[in-house]
Amino acid sequence: MVQPLRRAPTRADVARLSGVSTAVVSYVLNDGPKAVSPAAKDKVLAAVRALGYRPNAAARALSKGSADLIGMLVGDTRNPFSAQLSYSVDKAAGDLGRTLLVVNSENGVATQSEHIRELAARQISGLISMRRVSGEELDLLSSFRMPTVLVNQMSSTPGTTSVGVDYREGARRAVEHLLGHGYQGIAFAGVDDAGDGRERGWMDAVTAADQPLGERVETTYSLRGGYAAGMRLGADGVMPRAIFAASDQIGIGLLAALHERGFDVPGDVAVVSFDGIREAEYSWPPLTTAAQPLVQIAELAVNALLDWDDLPRSVVLPTELIIRRSCGCSWRGAPAL
Rank of each mutant, 00 (worst) to 15 (best):
I128R: 03
V149C: 10
A120W: 04
R200G: 01
E169H: 10
R145Y: 14
E137A: 09
G126R: 12
D196C: 01
E118A: 15
V149I: 15
T99K: 08
G195N: 02
S142E: 11
R132N: 06
Q153A: 12
G185T: 07
L178W: 05
G185A: 08
R168T: 14
R200P: 07
A174V: 09
L138N: 08
E137K: 15
S125E: 12
G190R: 01
S156C: 07
L119M: 14
G185M: 00
M203W: 11
L178N: 06
G135A: 09
N107T: 12
G182W: 10
A110F: 15
A120M: 04
R198A: 13
G182M: 10
G197Y: 11
A121K: 09
R145P: 09
G195L: 00
N152D: 15
E199Q: 10
Q153E: 13
H181I: 10
D139R: 12
R132S: 06
S134K: 04
A120Q: 07
N107L: 12
L140G: 06
R145S: 15
H115L: 10
V103D: 08
R131A: 12
S105H: 03
R172G: 01
N152R: 15
D196I: 13
V109D: 11
V163A: 04
R98I: 02
D139V: 11
I128Q: 00
E176L: 13
L150F: 02
